[in-house]
Design a protein around this nucleic acid. Structure first.
Lengths: 342, 342
DNA sequence: ACGAAAGTTGCAATCGATTGCAGAATTAAA
DNA sequence: TTTAATTCTGCAATCGATTGCAACTTTCGT
């Protein structure tokens, strides 16, 4: 209607013969303003369709009440769960959340963080991309005293709160489980080793093998980007390997699925001939056939925790925090794809 | 390092004995500034670690170069595809994207749109929630002359560009396909009828039945929120129905999956006893067993289109656009769950 | 009734960048 | 050499809200 595209506190002030400062304080329910004018101002503001310009307020207060979130992909169940957790806590505390995805692309990650900084977010929650090996773009935040919280794909080189899952334990228990199922030759399709999470999953795998007196055979370990395509390539390689595996631990569910699809196509039975286990508990893992055994990560909780930590730091910037690394427990979910024994 | 948390154009100006205005223009590559000072300013800006405060610039220019996106859920494949499409175009045109999810919750949707407005986004791309039946919170934008583009779950009551898929055609072809497979009693698990997309899918279903000389039996139509739980409830009701269906058209893949899971558990064969078909082509539909026939929607393309339309409106605000409703084609994907005939 | 205290409101600077207009400096034209 | 045209730079207002401080009004104790 009114194409008066902006109603400002000055407009309200003029209408009521008050000063803009009074209007501002009234709208904030500042008790220094008499309750009479306070409610009057609020009523008129509503009538006039006033909406605060947060950009202006932000500029003055040097706060944006915005948390930036950087994730590799939003359509991974794990990440969207984390985002939901973040959003819940953030909204509850009056913060807004800006989400961006890097698509595991380093340049996009740099651009995104740059943009978040230029928009003066109060803090960032980050899970880095697979290509990311340098961290200058993130140091920008620590240098400017803007809190960062890392989750899942954390970076060792920067001091900050970090929230990870027990990847080592997950890898260990998964492998142990396969051994218990009678597997003797267990392969591993791992992720890129610049990411700690994949290093840890792999270490868990190796240690479980050693513990059981099985040797670690490097020809049975293939590191990939864990996509559908690379999962297929990996299983082809493994099938042609000198010693053929009777079980495979895949570092995520996507690659596990592609392995299973390929094996089925080739008439190789899962889990009888080759058992397969994944990591992350994507929703499809439960419904495919055979259903995929996997490790469940508490994404929603991690998001909540991350949001709490970042908000706490934003609100108490003065105090130098001592940074913690929180390790969240994982849960092994045993389904059809890994049960050789009935 | 330098905890000088802000370097402003004034700092640069002081250092170079220039005016802030000159620095500002130099940084924008304004040709009115001599190329010598331009490059000098830019070099020093870099050295000093200057980063523009976009909030300040936005306040002055009354532009934010930000597009707000409101979707029900970001972890639905369709929606995250749309978001990717939006992001691609937006980034390419120098726009930032703020994504928020309403969780199909009306109040959250209101709060989100309010926040987007308060942040003065230049435009919004919206797909409304299942509970949404009033639209005051969206009229805010049209009243203030901020462009909106709706996609998928559009609202008739507001004039704007709209991007939808051919839901009617999808519902029609899906039903026709089931008829061709020899189904005689086709049920429909539909969505909430306040959303046009579900009305249209249902209308397509009804018309296809009539066209084939089959009667529309209301006891075979159940409208739900299409969740896993409600899908299961619906199939239970249908199995107890006087006339039992031999095929079911579910208005999304989630409910189709829950139906299939339930039928399998009860020993009812899919598709032989009851054929099932979904809508949306979620990634799991391809990999479950039986794989689910469905309708594929061009999410990524829709996102790109939506972003193009909104940017175009933002850049040419003066001209009153004549609003279009773009109907994107769908594709029927026939998999195992619906093929009664070999 | 008078001064102090408490309660209200306004003035004006500020946040950081942008931009119309004017003024200074340089160059070209006469 | 003088004037006009061109180039370059600076002044100061502006965007909309916030906030320290001053000023004004009312209330209250004595």
């Amino acid at each position: 209607m009114a194409n008066k595209s902006e109603v400002t506190i000055h407009d309200i002030a003029k209408k009521l013969n008050l000063a803009a400062s009074t209007v501002s304080r009234a709208l904030q329910d500042n008790p220094v303003i008499s309750s009479g004018t306070r409610s009057l101002v609020k009523r008129i503001a509503l009538e006039m369709g006033y909406r605060p310009n947060v950009q202006a307020a932000n500029l003055r207060t040097r706060r944006t009440n915005t948390i930036g979130v950087v994730v590799p992909l939003i359509n991974r169940y794990f990440f969207s769960s984390v985002i939901s957790g973040i959003e819940e806590i953030a909204y509850g505390n009056g913060f807004t959340v800006t989400i961006s995805q890097s698509n595991d692309n380093f340049e996009k990650e740099c651009k995104i963080t740059q943009t978040l900084f230029d928009n003066r977010v109060d803090g960032v929650i980050v899970s880095i991309g697979m290509q990311t090996t340098t961290f200058e773009h993130l140091k920008l935040f620590s240098e400017r005293n803007i809190p960062i919280v890392f989750f899942d794909r954390v970076v060792d080189e920067i001091e900050a709160h970090k929230i990870v899952v027990d990847d080592y334990g997950g890898g260990y228990r998964v492998t142990e489980h396969l051994i218990n199922q009678g597997a003797k030759t267990i392969a591993h399709i791992g992720g890129p080793l610049n990411l700690k999470i994949y290093v840890n999953r792999q270490k868990g795998y190796c240690d479980a093998l050693k513990k059981a007196g099985l040797e670690v055979n490097n020809s049975l370990i293939i590191n990939t980007m864990l996509s559908t395509e690379e999962g297929t390539e990996a299983i082809i390689k493994l099938l042609n390997n000198e010693t053929r595996p009777d079980a495979i631990f895949c570092a995520n569910d996507t690659s596990a699925l592609s392995v299973i699809v390929y094996l089925k196509k080739k008439g190789i039975r899962v889990p009888e001939d080759i058992a397969v286990i994944g990591f992350s508990n994507e929703p499809f893992s439960e419904v495919v056939s055979p259903s995929i055994s996997t490790i469940k990560q508490p994404g929603f909780l991690m998001g909540q925790k991350a949001a709490q930590l970042i908000i706490q730091q934003i609100l108490h910037k003065k105090e130098e925090p001592h940074f913690r690394t929180i390790v969240m427990p994982t849960e092994i979910i045993i389904r059809e794809s890994s049960q050789k024994k009935a």
